[in-house]
Design a protein around this nucleic acid. Structure first.
Lengths: 243, 243
DNA sequence: CGGAAAATTGAGTACTCTCAACCAGCGTGG
DNA sequence: CCACGCTGGTTGAGAGTACTCAATTTTCCG
């Protein structure tokens, strides 16, 4: 079967930043990809295991996480269709964190040696992949700031702004009038913001009470973008949506 | 003057992971580098400004940071000689964070277009630079975990372990019997761990009281590596010292 | 319809912060 | 040579944000 259309979100994202010839696109889609689907919380990559493949998310959400010694979990990033989940494993031999599906989702998997070979012959693909890993890192940096220097209200507001901005930029269908498909549980939100689920719940209620957001049954509406961004000290710069 | 020896820490670090021909090294050192020295707290890169150069730290310490809306500072990473300070700016047009010298230090500065051109013709240099930015990102991820899911004691222990491990790996001279040159102030330590300077002070005292470390007048001694690593939930994996 | 997962609520606890004062080391200048 | 001032480190007391634990309600799915 032809899975060429599954690359559309990726190419749309890339083409906003770099020039990509149709030969480049053809070369990428021609790689031996395998499509796999996952139920929620399935591990795609496990910390400590040798790296052999790379995954491009094409449906659903995914996230990366690490577990600390007492069993607590810290989520490191969320991912939406059109994003790679483990690009760093192209050059690293052992994975340093876990990757999990967040809901029912699917990804294209390719052997990393095939992708590495393509990169050597395709400068634009190479550039795009490197840029992607730099954008990942920029988000990690902002998360360090979010966890280190913002209180619970600001952390959650910031995370909601980030996800909304990325979903909007990706042109996700439901993103009309700031309404987003938002399948995160409050526990996942808590594990991403370094809070407990209970405190996350109370903080969300405070954001709702103030008329900033509406969030229920996997639907997030941002009722007042400006005030939410102010509460979350959010600026889009670190997403580098232009260049 | 010949500044070729200033690249030694970089090449030593790189050669542990990848093969590098003498032509590769010559090509890199032959770029039009300018050496600049900095007094403490000098800005090398400012958030929001267009990126034009790349910096390789050759003496002293440096760090990256972001400021939040209320003026608080979050340090994102520390850097030692032989590390690049702003590799991501090769591909990003606007800097998303600040880079500052931590003490009296100096760096080699090169125009980023010159470095980009070299990368296109030197696959091994390219590979080394990409790997460096992936290692940066791995450290950012671990910091997310550190800030999100560890208490003050563990955060500080973890940070001390990381810096000690990196200094030891770099073969810094003073690193005999776990004694390290450690010029960070408690305020900088606090800004890196998301704590206040006061609480950082009390937590350091508790680590000293327990016989884990000795820290004064810019000298850190790790008295009991195993217990400190246990307190800090520290594992070297994310540093990817092998591969 | 039933059971599990997710969300919500309450009460008590504790870790970390804030503010403010004080001490120690060090380079500069009188 | 000592006084001075600045930065960095230390201490104390009180406040507050976020946590823990446990129970309850609501939602989601098979």
């Amino acid at each position: 079967m032809d899975h060429r259309h599954l690359f559309d979100p990726l190419f749309r994202r890339w083409c906003r930043r770099i020039e990509l010839s149709s030969q480049d696109k053809d070369a990428l889609t021609a790689l031996p990809w395998a499509q796999r689907t996952f139920t929620r919380d399935t591990y795609l990559v496990r910390e400590g295991e040798p790296t052999t493949m790379c995954s491009l998310l094409v449906r659903g959400f995914a996230f990366r996480q690490k577990l600390v010694e007492d069993g607590a979990r810290q989520i490191i990033s969320f991912h939406i269709p059109g994003e790679f989940l483990d690009l760093q494993n192209l050059l690293l031999e052992v994975s340093d964190h876990n990757v999990q599906s967040l809901n029912r989702s699917s990804a294209l998997i390719v052997n990393k040696t095939a992708l590495l070979a393509l990169m050597d012959s395709r400068p634009h693909i190479r550039r795009a992949l490197w840029l992607d890993s730099l954008l990942d890192a920029s988000v990690f940096r902002e998360w360090v700031v979010n966890l280190g220097r913002r209180d619970a209200r600001a952390r959650i507001a910031h995370l909601l702004c980030e996800l909304a901005a990325r979903l909007k930029s990706a042109g996700v269908a439901q993103a009309e009038e700031d309404l987003y498909d938002f399948p995160l549980t409050q526990e996942q939100l808590a594990d991403a913001t370094g809070l407990t689920a209970v405190h996350t719940n109370r903080t969300l209620q405070s954001l709702r009470r103030d008329g900033l957001i509406s969030l229920s049954s996997s639907q997030l509406t941002i009722l007042d973008w400006d005030r939410l961004a102010e509460v979350g000290d959010f600026s889009e710069r670190y997403l580098h949506h232009s260049v």
